[in-house]
Design a protein around this nucleic acid. Structure first.
Lengths: 157, 157
DNA sequence: GAAGATTGACCCATCAATCTTA
DNA sequence: TAAGATTGATGGGTCAATCTTC
């Protein structure tokens, strides 16, 4: 019997992954690590802006009135609520956003993009988009990108 | 002219991404964040083992003699050298690995899998593999997985 | 001097507990 | 009591500087 695929010791209560599965999975992990690392480094070097901070600015600019509730921001940037609190603390210190108490529900707070934040984002965006194209998009055809898009949609939320 | 694709203000020195590009890129980021988060949580809950620690144990077991130089380990788990030093510190404290000075080159150090580490890995592996299958592999056909594998190979190292 | 690895200072994120307002 | 957000404690990571051995 050919055991070359699993390389699992006899008696092990689980079978290993096939080469195809391994390549898809490990490649996915390596791809993410490599691209995210370099994008963050480039953004940091040229604009003093970590990737997560950039992500916050982008989401605020896309939002109505340049403002988002803290919990909305957390959902948008894939961070915990407390993580967003700290992140916004830093951005406030840098003058890129400000907080605004919510008028109707005084428990709530908005995070609002400042003019300085908008300006910084405008400068950083070309760097970031260039990086995404160069390090990720450029490797694939339009059809392949469309394929990837549909594949991602299948993963459970 | 149809500007609906870019949504970029006039005068902006870069064009935005197309919907197809956005779906492929953002989906990639969300997919990674979601899957990695849950895998780490499951491993941590059932075996008290973070994903990076698990990754170290796997790489050691695959290696000749269950041992790897620190710099080799760093390359394998996609961490900086100092990051690996800290990580191995923790694993040594847990008794899952031990350090061994290199005989030929006394600057170097090996990280060696202990029996306890091997045992812990054997228990954790089914949980991890099940998670990878359930949260990632199960969403795709074999052909699609093979496709993903070839796509990842195109990204620059 | 350079390679292999560690350490010190610091950055960034999470969970659980907390504070405030509804 | 519950919802929105922040805080304290802690885990885990990076870079730059350092120590040892080649």
């Amino acid at each position: 019997v050919d055991k070359s695929i699993t390389a699992t010791a006899p008696g092990t209560p689980c079978a290993g992954l096939s080469p195809v599965e391994l390549d898809a999975w490990r490649g996915f992990l390596r791809a993410h690590a490599a691209v995210a690392r370099r994008l963050d480094a480039e953004l940091q070097e040229h604009h003093g802006l970590p990737l997560t901070s950039y992500d916050v600015l982008v989401n605020l600019e896309d939002a109505e009135g340049g403002r988002l509730r803290m919990y909305e921001l957390a959902g948008a940037v894939l961070l915990s609520l407390s993580g967003v609190t700290r992140l916004v603390d830093r951005l406030v210190a840098d003058g890129l956003v400000c907080r605004e108490r919510c008028a109707q529900d005084r428990r709530g707070a908005f995070c609002v993009l400042t003019d300085a934040g908008r300006a910084r984002l405008a400068k950083a965006r070309p760097t970031h988009l260039d990086g995404v194209r160069r390090l990720f998009l450029a490797a694939f055809s339009t059809e392949e990108l469309a394929g990837l898009g549909t594949l991602w949609r299948r993963l459970a939320p």
